[in-house]
């Protein structure tokens, strides 16, 4: 076992290697993880280092710079790709009851799912819009920086083993029909109705480095900000503020908030538990 002094040296080297690796990723490939929470990034990179049988983050950096397959793996490790349909059903119930009646007043809706990962929540909301009769006048933008997860999202095919849980969530979220109306199960895969995809545009967009691309009525971005430090959270919340119409809505994850952020004064709290906010109408 290391003595404490050796461990101090190991620690400062590890810290340096981590910073250099993140610098390499942004300088060579434009992917910027420097303002992600360090504990998460470090944990994921060390895990990948061990899986590849490498001894240091410097070695991992070498692989990232010289092998595109390693880069793809790292992007997957660092992207947030765990999601589920109607994750936190009460959030969707609240969208249905508190936000939909207000969205109904607009002739045309633009909705942005930011950081949509493999798309489960995009299809969840598409179904909700259909049931509320709003789908046909909606344009949905579903974005993520990771094109690999976007490919999965575009297919709309998910493991049948998850369907039981999703059905429970759908019902708890106020679903009006039978959940099985929306997918066809074949072997171990459930394929969601391609009709749901008609008004969805899946596109690559990086919240850290890209800017406003549309003026939207509702932005849903759940469990993405928890990975960012305060400065990056502020940057992204400002991007959302700039992308919303006056009176537009913002839905965050259950542990995320706009309180204490630099856009706090720009929003009203619609539902504090479900983290639903509305951009103020400034005259």
């Amino acid at each position: 076992m290391n003595t404490s002094e050796n461990q101090d040296i190991d620690d400062s080297i590890l810290q340096l290697e981590l910073e250099l690796l993140l610098e390499a990723l942004v300088r060579q490939y434009g992917y910027d993880f420097r303002n992600y929470n360090k504990a998460h990034v470090k944990r994921r990179l060390l895990y990948r280092m061990q899986q590849l049988g490498l001894k240091s983050l410097s070695e991992l950096q070498h692989h990232i710079l010289h092998q595109s397959s390693t880069l793809a793996m790292i992007l997957k490790d660092l992207s947030i790709n765990v999601t589920e349909m109607y994750r936190d059903p009460s959030f969707y119930l609240s969208l249905r009851k508190e936000v939909i009646p207000l969205l109904r007043t607009y002739p045309y809706l633009r909705i942005w799912h930011a950081g949509c990962a493999t798309g489960e929540e995009v299809y969840s909301f598409a179904i909700l819009l259909k049931e509320e009769g709003l789908y046909d006048r909606s344009q949905i933008y579903a974005t993520d920086f990771n094109t690999e997860v976007l490919d999965t999202a575009k297919k709309g095919i998910y493991p049948v083993s998850k369907i039981k849980e999703y059905t429970f969530n759908y019902q708890a979220a106020g679903g009006k029909n039978s959940f099985s109306d929306y997918y066809t199960a074949r072997y171990d895969a459930a394929r969601f109705d391609p009709e749901l995809r008609k008004n969805i545009v899946f596109a690559s967009h990086n919240l850290v480095t890209d800017s406003v691309f549309a003026e939207t009525h509702l932005i849903i971005c759940r469990n993405v900000l928890i990975y960012f430090d305060r400065s990056l959270q502020n940057k992204v919340l400002n991007l959302f503020n700039d992308s919303l119409i006056m009176g537009g809505f913002l839905g965050l994850g259950s542990k995320e908030n706009i309180m204490f952020s630099t856009v706090q004064d720009q929003f009203l709290i619609l539902n504090p538990n479900e983290k639903l906010f509305r951009k103020k109408i400034m005259k």
Binding site: N37, H40, R44, I80, N223, I226
Partner: peptide
């Protein structure tokens, strides 16, 4: 400080 994640 604390961080929260939803990874696997």
């Amino acid at each position: 400080t604390f961080s929260l994640t939803v990874e696997e």
